[in-house]
């Protein structure tokens, strides 16, 4: 196991999270949810500590983290951009919107811009199909977005 370099306060926090689920291996997904809520993402070190605390292998934790799309091993941007690629949004042109975000920010899906400001991800249906295509940035929802609106949306966050 690699040497743990996380700040002690963070390690303590993780230990506490695991403890709140009785260090029970079957609670792994709940533990990961809580850990991601706290740290924003799940880097290798966090997974190692969780494995140690729940007494399961790191491979098992890694297997679960990479299986579910909700868990991320890289930090998201300050303004995480999610483009809905549900079918309803897709048929109303979500792909063009996604292409435009990728082009304007020069990052592929799943990555964060160098300045750490924006990250792009795709999600499947937020259930606001009446507003298709939908883009969410943080908590904010943008409806009926077209490729032409993308520059203006990005500008809002660049001030």
């Amino acid at each position: 196991m690699a040497k743990i370099k996380l700040a002690k306060s963070k390690v303590d926090k993780l230990v506490e999270i695991c403890k709140s689920f009785d260090n029970e291996g079957s609670e792994l997904i709940n533990v990961l949810h809580k850990a991601q809520e706290t740290f924003g993402y799940l880097p290798a070190e966090v997974q190692e500590i969780i494995a140690r605390e729940l007494n399961v292998s790191v491979a098992h934790v890694y297997g679960v983290v990479t299986f579910y799309s909700f868990f991320s091993m890289v930090p998201k941007g300050e303004f995480p951009i999610s483009i809905c690629m549900g079918t309803a949004c897709y048929v109303r042109g979500a792909e063009k919107v996604l292409e435009e975000f990728k082009r304007q920010l020069s990052v592929p899906v799943g990555e964060t811009t160098e300045d750490g400001k924006f990250s792009i991800s795709c999600l499947r249906c937020v259930g606001a199909c009446g507003l298709a295509p939908v883009v969410t940035i943080g908590e904010r929802v943008y409806g009926r977005v077209s490729a032409g609106d993308v520059a203006d949306i990005i500008k809002e966050y660049q001030k």
Binding site: I29, N30, H33, Y68
Partner: peptide, 19 residues
């Protein structure tokens, strides 16, 4: 759940519930 379409299948869903 944590975002896996296959978990709609009941045996997969049960495994996911077990962590």
């Amino acid at each position: 759940g944590a975002g896996a379409f296959v978990c709609g299948e009941e045996t997969a869903l049960i495994h996911s519930m077990e962590g």
